[in-house]
Simulated scan of single mutants.
Amino acid sequence: MIVQFSAGKLIVTPFEVQVRLDNGCQLYAMVDDIKFHLDALMLVADAGAVRWNIRLDSIEQLQDIKDELGIA
Rank of each mutant, 00 (worst) to 15 (best):
F36A: 05
Q4H: 13
L27Q: 00
A47D: 12
V50C: 04
V3N: 01
I71T: 00
A40D: 07
Q4L: 09
A47Q: 13
M42Y: 12
T13R: 03
L41I: 00
V50M: 07
L27W: 06
L38R: 00
D64E: 12
Q63D: 14
E16D: 10
L56K: 07
A29Y: 04
C25Q: 08
F15I: 08
F5S: 11
S6P: 12
L10P: 05
D39S: 14
M42L: 15
G48Y: 12
D67H: 15
L43I: 02
Q63Y: 07
D46K: 06
F5R: 15
D64Y: 13
G70D: 00
I2Y: 10
H37E: 09
I11S: 07
Q18H: 13
T13N: 08
L27N: 00
D33N: 13
L10R: 04
S58I: 04
V17I: 12
W52F: 10
F36Q: 05
S58Y: 02
I11R: 11
L62R: 06
N53H: 11
D46I: 00
I65R: 03
M1L: 09
G70W: 03
G48R: 05
V19E: 01
L38F: 08
D67Q: 11
A72D: 13
I59T: 01
L41C: 05
G24T: 11
A45K: 09
D64W: 14
A40Q: 08
A47G: 14
L10V: 00
L38M: 13
I71D: 00
E68W: 02
L38V: 15
S58L: 01
W52L: 01
S58C: 08
D46N: 15
N23D: 15
L21G: 13
D33R: 01
D64M: 15
V3P: 06
D39W: 06
G48F: 13
R20C: 09
L10N: 09
L10E: 07
V17M: 01
E68L: 11
D64I: 13
A45G: 05
L27C: 04
G24D: 02
N53R: 14
E16V: 14
V12M: 06
Q61W: 07
V12R: 03
D46C: 10
I71S: 00
G70Q: 02
I71H: 00
